[in-house]
Design a protein around this nucleic acid. Structure first.
Length: 424
RNA sequence: GGAAGGGUGGCUGAGUGGUCUAAAGUAUCUGACUCGAAAUCAGACGUGGGGGCAACCUCACCGUGGGUUCGAAUCCCACCCCUUCCGCCA
């Protein structure tokens, strides 16, 4: 959520920064400005009336104590009460409309965010490793997985429908080994606290991190209990500190959480994604940080590096791109995507998206900290996948496939997997 | 799911219709005393909004949302959460 004061005091700055995303936002900013003026006028009048009511009510109290007739004042206060109700309705309506508009406006891209309109304009920041060379034609993970019995899409469809799968045997074990590998890496070497959160959350959490109200059609919802299945661990983990004021020594907060993620992917069915690449349910280890504004950009760099370590340890070729202003996610001010090479796909797969949200999420969830001067300020929040599992699984299986049909397990994963190879 | 009790500032806790401007204690901070500390004394000490160049003024907030009333922390209704017991259950 943007600061209404910033919009009020510097609307042109807000408009120009939002224009870096898309040209659609200028009229919304104008509507917001008008609404803000009307809202404050109504609010001021209401408060004057309330002050008058408080004063007269106190007089009535004292008058009654002294045995005076107070019926005239009572009638007057009754009239004031009616006007308070009337104006209060206007003020409340303007207030809730203003909040709705603010919740629907994306974050301002950071000044350092590269300008651009689409994914085509995303600059590549660095590349690690090289594309592996095969003496044979590398197969797609679905082919390898079927031959080795690692997962079963037909069983997934039978139980839950399309875009669900069942991992089994060595496939299920590999998935579990990867989860343990990732959690161990981030908690013992990178200093994150491990969190295992609920997978069902209140709507307020999704508002806090930005999925609601705008992207409600992308999350699963249990109507009977009004709970939502999390689309990412970012939601429960960042919201651990919703409505809190953190003490000076508490920052930065660093959390790592493994959870399954649930996404309806409404509107993207049948978009040509095969196998494990786009699923309604997938596993992910998420990294979440809560920091001061001064340190959030440095923390983004180290968060991204922590995610990259995963691919380095597994010996997987990847590149890091930075999202341009037009491709930036709704709440993000600056984002790096990490894309791993998948030989069977002949392309890169996004396995991590590392973002600095600035104070955008913190405002939505009223997450603050007390600075050295004792002032309450909004925190900065960050998160990034460390990493998504299904696509990591794809890259791993396709990169380490052997001509005889087996899969070599990279050194770093062997203690967790308990063998050096699958098949043959 | 049923029954009972409860939800007030960082914490403990008083307040059952009108100087509540929410007592008191405790914690914290500042100052005094002290060589220093402890103890003691004094002061400060919630969050958000509106108005004002400012000093400052003002409104709202006692789990949440409604209602009654001239006036609600206080009375009424609904809901949420916590504790204990019962039921069900991995």
């Amino acid at each position: 959520m943007l600061d209404i004061r910033l919009i009020r005091e510097n609307p042109d700055l807000v408009k120009s920064r939002l224009a870096a995303r898309s040209p659609d936002w200028a009229p919304v900013v104008d509507e917001l400005l008008e609404l803000d003026t009307a809202r404050r006028a109504a609010e001021t009048e209401r408060q004057h009336l309330q002050a008058e009511r408080n004063r007269l009510s106190k007089e009535i109290g004292m008058g009654r104590k002294n045995g005076q007739d107070t019926s005239a004042q009572e009638a007057e206060v009754r009239g004031i009460g009616d006007r308070i109700d009337q104006i209060g309705r206007d003020a409340d309506a303007a207030d809730s409309r203003q909040r709705d508009l603010l919740l629907g406006i994306p974050n301002l891209p950071h000044e350092a965010c590269p300008a651009g309109a689409t994914a085509e304009d995303n600059p590549e920041r660095r590349v690690w490793g090289e594309k592996p060379v095969f003496a044979f034609a590398p197969k797609d993970h679905t082919v390898i997985g079927q031959a080795l019995g690692l997962f079963d899409f037909e069983a997934g469809a039978k139980i839950s429908g399309s875009a669900f799968t069942v991992y089994r045997g060595a496939g299920a074990r590999l998935e579990r080994a990867l989860i343990n590998f990732l959690l161990d890496l981030h908690t013992t070497r990178h200093g994150y606290e491990e969190i295992s959160p609920p997978l069902l959350v209140h709507a307020a959490c999704l508002v806090g991190t930005g999925q609601l109200p705008k992207f409600g059609d992308q999350v699963y919802h249990s109507a009977a209990d009004d709970l939502y299945l999390i689309p990412t661990a970012e939601v429960p983990v960042t919201n651990l500190h919703r409505e809190e004021i953190l003490k000076p020594g508490q920052l930065p907060v660093r959390y790592a959480a493994y959870t399954p993620c649930f996404r309806r992917e409404a509107g993207s069915a049948g978009l040509g994604t095969r196998g494990l690449i786009r699923m309604h349910q997938f596993d992910k280890v998420e990294l979440v940080k809560i920091t001061t504004p001064e340190s959030s950009m440095d923390e983004l760099e180290s968060l991204t590096a922590d995610a990259e370590t995963v691919l380095q340890q597994l010996g997987l070729h990847y590149r890091v791109i930075e999202l341009c202003s037009g491709d930036l996610g709704f709440g993000s001010a600056k984002t790096y995507d990490i894309e791993v090479w998948a030989p069977g796909q002949g392309g890169y797969l996004e396995v991590s998206s590392c973002s600095n949200f600035g104070d955008y999420q913190a405002r939505r969830m009223n997450l603050r900290y007390k600075d050295e001067d004792g002032k309450n300020r909004f925190c900065h929040t960050l998160n990034g996948s460390g990493t998504a599992l299904a696509r990591l699984f794809v890259a791993l299986v396709e990169t380490y496939q052997q001509e005889d049909g087996s899969i070599l397990i990279p050194e770093a994963l062997r203690p967790h997997f308990g063998a050096d190879r699958i098949g043959a």
